[in-house]
Amino acid sequence: MTDTFAPTTRFAVPGRIAVSNRAAAVWQTATLTEIRRETPHASTFRFAVPGWSGHLAGQHLMLRLRAEDGYVAQRHYSIASHPDDTGHVELTLDHVEGGEVSGWFHTVAAPGDTVEVRGPLSGFFAWPGDRPALLLGAGSGVVPLMSMLRQHRARRLSVPLRLVVSARGPEELIYAREYGAETTTVFTRTAPQGVPVGRMAAAHVAPLLAEQPPGGWEAYVCGSNGFAEHASRLLVEAGQPVDRIRIERFG
């Protein structure tokens, strides 16, 4: 039996793109060129990576730091910048309590410092910009979704894109100045006067599925596991097919 195997069960979410394995295998030097504060707990770090092969919105990279005694710490981070920002990548990192890598970025790192990166990695969560995109994110889960939104704008794409982004409050909303009419913000703890406070709900998601474009949405969900479980359930209950929901969870 040598025929191609396909499971008898429903296929969840087929991969979208061919990934360059050669680019993913090579560690490259990334030079920090700029740090921009986004919120009290998150900043954007811009790097020059001259040999960067390019990426698709939604992909991530692996980053490593090395101590003098040879100790190495490596982490996966979603890429925030859009694919046409040639030779550069931007990462937006939360300052994780006790985090050895995010702690270094938030307390030590300065322009001119160098780190090492490999990527882009994984095609599963990538959005090539071809199909209507419905994006649900919470906290720093908005980072790969912002790469998609930036690409949508930079290339003046006509394909529909909608973003629902959740944050604890306005001061915790990453990229607050960049959202436009495509975005709905949800505040879970504090909100400006007259704006409701609460969890992302069917009322935010159902109207977007009611007005879905021909061929339907590709849904992308990114955030903590708790948020991902909640948001993906909202999508399913509103009628989004499970095999057109991609989920990226922190961890």
């Binding site: 560690w27 050895e100 270094w104 410092d113 160098t114």
Partner: peptide
């Protein structure tokens, strides 16, 4: 692999 300026990392166990 180069050393990252000022990076010490978590305690070595």
């Amino acid at each position: 692999m180069h050393v990252t300026r000022g990076f010490t990392g978590r305690p070595r166990v």
